[in-house]
Design a protein around this nucleic acid. Sequence first.
DNA 1: TGACTTTGTTCGGTTGCCGAACAAAGTGCG
DNA 2: CGCACTTTGTTCGGCAACCGAACAAAGTCA
Lengths: 411, 411
Amino acid sequence: MTTPTRAKPARSGIAREGGLANEVLEFVWRRREVSRAEIARRTGRSRSTISEVVARLLPTGLIHEVGSGESRGGRRPILIGFRDDASTILGVDIGAAHVSVALTDLRGRVLEWREEAHPVRNDPHGTAALAVELGAACLAARGPGAPEPMGIGVAVPSPVDPLSPYRILERILPAWHDFDLLGELRGRFGIPVFVDNDANLGALAEHHWGKAVGIDDFAYLKVATGIGAGLMIDGEIYRGATGVAGEIGHVAIDPRGPQCVCGNRGCLATFVGTRALVARTRTLLSDFPQSVLAGTDPDIWTLEDAALADDPLALKVVDEAARNLGIVIAGVLNLMNPGSVILGGSLARLGDRLVTPLKEAVASRTLVASAAASDIRTSELGPRATALGAATHVLVAALADPNLFPGVNAR
Amino acid sequence: MTTPTRAKPARSGIAREGGLANEVLEFVWRRREVSRAEIARRTGRSRSTISEVVARLLPTGLIHEVGSGESRGGRRPILIGFRDDASTILGVDIGAAHVSVALTDLRGRVLEWREEAHPVRNDPHGTAALAVELGAACLAARGPGAPEPMGIGVAVPSPVDPLSPYRILERILPAWHDFDLLGELRGRFGIPVFVDNDANLGALAEHHWGKAVGIDDFAYLKVATGIGAGLMIDGEIYRGATGVAGEIGHVAIDPRGPQCVCGNRGCLATFVGTRALVARTRTLLSDFPQSVLAGTDPDIWTLEDAALADDPLALKVVDEAARNLGIVIAGVLNLMNPGSVILGGSLARLGDRLVTPLKEAVASRTLVASAAASDIRTSELGPRATALGAATHVLVAALADPNLFPGVNAR
DNA sequence: TGACTTTGTTCGGTTGCCGAACAAAGTGCG
DNA sequence: CGCACTTTGTTCGGCAACCGAACAAAGTCA
């Protein structure tokens, strides 16, 4: 009855303040070096207004004057540059069986990197301690004089409800019930902490640093222990009504398929998850005595290496996986019409060995195949993509409202 | 190089001007009768500001003072009401084999209604002439003193590219290549014309007048000659990168299924389109000699009527259709996590006879079944839903920017 | 060299919105 | 009934954001 309805709640949970100062800041970040007059032209504001805004932004230390640019027939412009080293960000990737941490600058460069295997599912306290330890190690490696990071981003292998991000993992990881990972991190480092689902953050990383730069509507599929999709719609992560959009691991693709942990039969995850791929490889070993994998106990890494070496057994497993993925991707294309589909997770390093059979499977299942199927690609961001995406989330929040990060303008 | 990037291109193609005046206008429309003080509270603005905005809005004739409301312990408020009869809107539904036109007021009430069967696919000129004729008939029935409508909305059974809405139907209806339906209508009536896909407009109708009032993320499925989905995301129709989002009729649900016109096998449309349902009914006739349909040549209407009368043959056909639809809807739920799924098209009148088996099929294919599957419902808007949605599109545009409709404030 | 451009700043003015103050019109209690 | 208190809607002064015009500085081009 008395709830103000003024501002739409931002779907991303990020302020998106709309102020001109933020718009200019984000523009300078995107263009790296740009004059006041150019900002004025591109934002549609007057030069006088932009001059004033830039003057207010300079003392934050996020931007600075970096010299003069080329003349366009008159006075040479003073270029405004973004200070990529004005601060740093910690990106934490909580996987199914590992924790990794990246320390990045404000341009997505990974300055430090730590990774360690850990039984995440059953040990929330140890996981949090490990994340703190790896983060501290990243900071220590930068030396004593390095500035404090401005924030921490965390990727978790589970849906995140944007309305109550603190109670996250319990659905998939019961041991994590009511454990406050975020509070732990905030308490240790004393800076803002953000969480999101790993596939969502992978999509964010692709949007900023990968194959989706400049594309505002695309789907990112991460194939790992589980399978998840991150959907970017109009430049923002789409979460759906209750925050579980993109949970495609349990789409049924074969009602006669094997039993899945979720209780149904023939889920995508039972065919394409890393465990399923390794199991399938073991089953086929006896049929491929000439395979380099023959006589070994394969895991996902040796399987991928074998595929990269064009081993026939590995290629057969990848081919089957691609065709099963294709069923689901065709559905995504028909339903959402994304501008691009990007494949992430370790399988992405197989490149065309994965994409070619995938495109075939998709083309036979889509009406507008020619247009849609042509833009399926593999990520090139590598194993650091998720942690990088977590850091990127903090960067996006900072550009949208730098006031949330008091540490920055105190330099 | 010189493109201004100021305003994001609105995905809907509608202005969404953001001005306070439009916000107030839309608020008054939603609340029907509301005082200045209440508007101020709910929009977060001051009473003085709202007073001024209302004063500027009153001369448009879209709102007016309608008396005084209940006191809340002090002076009684002056209620501001929306003039539902300030203008009218023409909504045109171009179907696969019919044209229908609704004349509505600004509250979605259908004042006049005309419908006629027509071979739309092969006769664009005749179709346009028929739309004009039915529209004129609606206007004539209102008498000579009636005000001119403020705009025309058109629903077409084909994707619409928001960037070039004039070349619409050629992909699905080759005979329509380069025929300018919109120009025809604009030339005849001299008022703004808007187009969109029929499923999108059905979703819009549900959002304003049907089962999705208050729900900003949902999927609307229309089952007719073809099958299409309208996706509403954050209160706006989602079109995807190239305007074909929701084209789910050709999702493959059975690789061993029958050949489809699109060239693939086992498309959803080959199982659940009206033609497929009638064909399936004919096939099963011999197995159900006790059916009321036995000995008849059934069509989609008699089939639905039989199902409503609990005829076993009809129920079996509906049951099969529901299970096939369920496959696709489960995919929609897993991928997009909509707050609700609403079924439209004539099949919707079967109600629980359709929804119950559908929910069963969905529940066995979704991970978060309990939450998601519970909110699948049938539309109650009936056969006028699409034309109503077309008119609603014009209403939405008008509320977002009444300046587009000069005819209104000239009263 | 001189005419013309472009940049960035200064300055006065408009616009949108706010808060304080006020009159009008209510309610509720002694 | 009378009086204190609320709520509504308007008026008016003021602030912040932004703009356009004017200008000096610094460049290009013929």
